[in-house]
Nucleic acid binder design. Structure first.
Length: 446
RNA sequence: UCGGCGUUAGCUCAAUGGUGGAGCAUUCGGCUGUUAACCGAAGGGUUGUAGGUUCAAAUCCUACACGCCGAGCCA
């Protein structure tokens, strides 16, 4: 019989004989009836084994099976007697590939550390598999969006000689006779070179931050996607962000309904992610905080709490982001930031030198910053000043300065953290579920 | 890095300073529509580590290790 099918396609095979190759997810028995749940990577289906309808060997083999045993099952697809749009497999034959040893992850509840230690098995569970499928779909949507809009994929190096932005702590390693190399925390500077060569480019790859950040929103190794466009100003940049986010979110809800349902995702909230998104300036955001009476709380050196009205110039913390976002049901673009708080490469507002032409995109429902972008400084003299102000090694930036020496143009781009995007779309409590094998300061295995 | 909380059976959790328990998992038995199936039985423990207080410590104290949550930093 060559009727092997995938469980995700099961609805097309009602009343037909099929073969499913997979694993035993769980099994319930009721005397002369057994209900094995089968998974094959594409989905899960309940099998029905009737003792009087199968051979003695098949019946006995089924009662030997343990959770996650690998098997090939033949049977007839039928509609569930009580549930709409649910299908079952009336089992006729079983071939055991391997009887699994006692499986550590039972259908009951487990603690996060136990599961994290067994991430290589945890990803077999329905929920984790659904998240990883959505992640794959998001990546596909991103690549298609940029492909369809005239962007060229531009892969930046991962070994870099210096800190791109000079802020975060970087992982380092020995690099032959050339001293230290650092793992890239951003491909942006290289993407700028790409934009001046190819017009519109995007990078997509792993990036690394050695910050000891132990929060639900941080991992040390994550995937970042960074488009960079020549002749785009900050407003063009925001137009692109809006169009891009709408495309990705709408495509995911169109193609990933069953997965989002497994995750219990409220799709109506994602459906609202349509252009235009609210755009507010940093100053307007600070006004919102003042109106809502959300103060800045700082711990002083002697451990006392200092509470004061939010001062213009400070960066937002989690409570501030939440307050700014709560009145909107779409991603909020906060733009034109205090230059002091932002990276050296951001262009200053020609009308106000205290302002940098940057934009942060805050996801709805309190998921925080998913995108950060800006128009880049294209004036070589101003850029050199910034490099000095930030105490960065000028020599290392010579090639970057060349981009301003030879045909400098206004250009802009942004960076999107893939795992934060996955967390938002899947409504995850913790970023560690958004990537197959998360890397955190306290975890490098499995 | 700082602050709060936690660590007890394979797993998830109970246990006034006074004989360490339950559910699930495992093994055995029962059940023809179960769906974290259910019912009955059995096995399963150096209470994170080291020290201290006490007639007596899972329980109180100290240190350390590990984890979770929050803050800072950011995607």
């Amino acid at each position: 019989m060559k009727n092997r099918i995938h469980i995700s396609d099961i609805a097309n095979y009602v009343d037909q004989s099929v073969e499913i190759k997979g694993w035993l997810y769980n099994i319930r028995s009721s005397g002369k009836l057994m209900f094995p749940e089968l998974r094959d990577g594409s989905g899960i289906i309940q099998g029905v084994v009737v003792k009087s309808a199968v051979s003695e060997k098949v019946w006995e083999d089924f009662s030997k099976l343990t959770q996650e045993s690998s098997l090939i099952v033949k049977g007839t697809v039928s509609k569930h007697p009580k549930k709409e749009n649910v299908y079952e497999l009336q089992v006729s034959d079983l071939e055991i590939i391997q009887i699994a040893e006692p499986y550590p992850i039972t259908p009951k509840e487990h603690g996060i550390e136990f599961l994290a230690d067994r991430r290589h098995l945890w990803i077999r569970s329905q929920r984790q598999a659904a998240i990883l499928r959505v992640r794959s779909e998001i990546v596909q949507a991103i690549r298609e969006y940029f492909y369809n809009n005239g962007f060229t994929l531009f892969d930046p190096p991962i070994f870099t000689p210096n800190a791109c932005e000079g802020t975060s702590t970087l992982f380092s390693t020995d690099y032959f006779d050339l001293g230290k190399a650092y793992l890239s925390q951003s491909g942006q500077l290289y993407a700028e070179a790409g934009a001046l060569a190819l017009g519109k480019v995007y990078t997509f790859g792993p990036t690394f931050r050695a910050e000891n950040s132990m929060t639900r929103r941080h991992i040390t190794e994550f995937w970042m996607m960074e488009p960079e466009m020549a002749y785009y100003d900050i407003d063009d940049d925001m137009d692109l962000i809006e169009d891009f986010l709408e495309y990705v979110v709408q495509r995911v809800i169109k193609n990933m309904k069953p997965e989002l349902e497994i995750l219990g995702r409220d799709i109506s909230k994602l459906e609202k992610v349509k252009k235009p998104f609210p755009r507010i300036t940093y100053s307007e955001a600070v006004d919102i905080l003042h109106k809502k009476d959300i103060p800045l709380i700082r711990k002083t050196a002697n451990g006392e709490e200092q509470i004061r009205p939010f001062p213009w110039g400070e960066d937002f913390g989690a409570p501030h982001e939440e307050a700014i976002v709560e009145d909107f049901d779409k991603p909020v673009m906060v733009h034109r930031w205090p230059a002091e708080a932002k990276a050296f490469y951001m262009k200053r507002d020609p009308n106000d030198p205290k302002i940098a032409l940057g934009v942060d995109v805050l996801a709805p429902e309190g998921f925080g910053e998913i995108i950060g972008g800006s128009q880049r400084e294209d004036n070589i003299n101003l850029l050199m000043e910034r490099i000095k102000e930030h105490d960065l090694p000028m020599d290392e930036f010579e090639w970057y300065l060349d981009l301003r020496r030879y045909g400098s143009v206004p250009h802009s781009g942004f960076g999107m953290g893939l795992e934060r995007m996955v967390s938002w779309i899947c409504n995850l409590e913790h970023i560690r579920e958004s990537i197959p094998f998360p890397r955190r300061p306290n975890r490098i295995r499995p």
